[in-house]
Each structure stands twice: as structure tokens, then as C-alpha cells.
Simulated scan of single mutants.
Amino acid sequence: MRLSAIPETAAVYYPILAAVGGPVNIVTIVILYFKNCGLSKCITRYLVAMATADLVVIVCNVILHRIAAIYCQDTFLFYTPVCRFVLYMSPAAIDISVWLTVSFTFDRLVAICCQKLKIKHCTEKTAAVVISIVSSLFCLKNIPWPFAYNSYGDLGCWLSTNVYISPAWIAFSWIEQLLTPVIPFFLILFFNIVTVKRILRANRGRMSLRQRNTAGNEKDPELMNLRKSIVLLYAMSSSFILLWMTTVIHFLLFRITGDFNRRFIFHHVTAFEEAGIMLQLLSSCTNTAIYTITQRKFRNLFISVIKYPLTLIGQLVKCEGNLQ
């Protein structure tokens, strides 16, 4: 991707992402909250929280930050208090979304691999506590961000050069990048490897048992559920890893080459970095959908919701035609 092509690509990409990601997450929240999709209350809690965090990412990071910078310059969004709030909520929402994904992945690890701990951990109450702690911690963790920006009078938010030369800010930037996405990236990879190995081991044991006891021609519901779990976990981990890989590689190269310390002189955003941002924001449309769309009840409800406006429009057109 050429550097000169980045603004043109972003100008098209972010509005499409907002137009798709916003409605998808809203529909997901409504269906999961008000309808019975056959999911446990614990899983539903996590998925609603993840979809809500992803919706905040779409609103704050994509619409109020990225799209506003392209199409809405010189508006109230660029008053210093407003833009500082947006620049605070953008990383906070991403942090919460990522770490809820980590928490959910760990919850599924416990549910599959730790039967004794499952009884205490995989409950709606525990899920609510984990969601509250994760949200509170990362709201607190991002408090320094509004103070990283300077303004001219009451307008604008420009990143201070102190961020690149002050030891305190450099330390904060290390912590910020390690917490999201480096540590979650490797935690999700590790959790899914452990979980998939456990599923495969249980799958082999059950298939061996069935071969001894039956002719092996009948379908085993538990084996089918195990296979679905493997597909689901691979889909979730692969999506997160692929969409965040560019950002992780950029961070590692950025620090190893020492470009961070020189950036206050030549402040620029490379094509590689912008591509990583685009991909990581795309995960706000896929994190929850990957799991929920694999559930038959949710899929049917989701399709019904999508079809409803089209059906309504068709009925209105038909009625108007009959009146004429």
C-alpha cells in the first residue's frame, strides 16, 4: 500500500466500516439481550459486553475520531474538551473490547478443560464481576491520554512532543502497547492452543470408545459439539490474531529500530501502521459475530431482523400500488 493512497483508502474504508459495524453490533446486542438464543447466561453476558464495547469503538474511534478528522473538520468535535474526551474513549474502548475477548476465551478454556473450576467460574455472576473489573481498570488506565494533547486556545488536540522524549510518557507508551495488543495477542493464542488440544484429546478418546462399543455409523451429538467448538475457537483466535498481527509486528519493529524516539522530529504515520489500525478496527465487527452467527437460533433471528425492513418496504409498496 502506497503512503499517498492511505488518505483516499481511509476516506472510503471508515464510512463503510461504520455503516456495517454500528448496525451489526446494535442488532447483536438487542437479539442477545431480549431473545433466547440457546446460550448460557454466562456466555450471553460476555457477548453482550463485547458487542457493546465494539459499538463504542465504532462510535468513538471510527466515527468521532477517524471519520470526523476526514469529513468534519472545524466542527464542535474539534473543541479541545470534546476531542480530548474522544481521544480518551477511543483507546479505552479498544482496551475493554480486547480484554473482554481475552476474558471470554479464558472462560471457555475453563469450561472445557477445568470441570471442577467450571462450576464456580462459568456463572453469570462471575461474568458480571469480570466485565465490571475489566471495564473499570481500563477506564482508569487511559486517564493519562487527554493530558498527552496540546491545544491552541479552545481548539484542537495535537499530540505533545513530550510523549516521544519524556521518560514517563515513554514508559506509559510501553505499558499501553504491551497491554493492548501484545499480551492479549499471545494470551488468546495460548488459551486457544490449550483448549483445542484438550478438545482433540477428548475427541480421540470418545471416537475410540464408540468404535469399541458400536459399529461407528451413528452420529454422536457430543462429537459434533466438539467439532463445532474446534471450528469456533479456530475462527475466534484466527480472526483476532490475523487482524491484530500487523499492529503487533509494527510495534515490535517500531521499538527495535528506535524509531519511536525520533518520531517527534519527523511526525508521520506510515502505510504499515495505518493498515494495522484499519485491520484492528475491523475486529470490532467480527469479534462477537464469529461466535454468535455459529449458533443456529441466533442466526435465524439475525436473518429475520435483516429481512424485516425489506419485507416492510415491500408491503408498503404493495399497499401503495393497490391504492392506486
Results as ranks from 00 to 15, higher is better:
7 P>C: 01
185 F>K: 06
232 L>R: 08
232 L>W: 08
240 F>G: 04
92 A>G: 03
118 K>C: 13
277 I>V: 15
211 Q>M: 05
237 S>T: 12
103 S>E: 06
167 P>D: 10
161 T>F: 00
162 N>R: 11
63 I>F: 09
315 Q>G: 01
31 I>M: 02
203 N>V: 12
21 G>N: 05
236 M>L: 13
193 I>T: 12
275 A>L: 15
32 L>I: 07
262 R>W: 03
136 S>F: 15
155 L>W: 10
309 P>F: 03
172 F>Y: 15
125 K>R: 03
229 S>A: 15
307 K>L: 15
74 D>R: 07
153 G>Q: 02
319 C>Y: 12
248 V>I: 12
263 R>W: 00
206 R>L: 14
285 C>E: 01
161 T>P: 02
280 Q>L: 14
79 Y>D: 04
57 V>G: 05
121 H>T: 08
52 T>R: 09
195 T>F: 02
32 L>R: 00
181 P>E: 05
281 L>P: 00
122 C>V: 11
278 M>F: 14
159 L>K: 10
261 N>L: 06
77 L>R: 04
324 Q>H: 14
308 Y>G: 00
104 F>T: 05
67 I>C: 11
221 P>S: 11
198 R>T: 15
6 I>S: 10
284 S>H: 04
22 G>S: 10
248 V>A: 07
87 L>W: 01
262 R>L: 06
264 F>R: 01
102 V>I: 03
276 G>R: 10
237 S>R: 01
295 Q>E: 15
8 E>Q: 07
219 K>D: 13
154 D>H: 14
62 V>K: 03
183 I>A: 12
256 I>F: 09
56 V>A: 13
163 V>G: 00
321 G>W: 13
254 F>P: 01
77 L>V: 04
206 R>E: 09
119 I>T: 13
57 V>F: 09
288 T>D: 11
160 S>E: 09
184 P>M: 06
45 R>E: 12
312 L>S: 09
136 S>C: 14
61 N>G: 12
30 V>Q: 04
96 I>E: 05
53 A>G: 11
125 K>W: 03
273 E>I: 00
125 K>N: 03
273 E>S: 01
206 R>D: 10
274 E>C: 11
292 T>N: 05
43 I>D: 11
232 L>K: 10
236 M>R: 07
243 L>N: 06
26 I>Q: 06
57 V>D: 04
80 T>A: 08
307 K>R: 14
65 H>I: 02
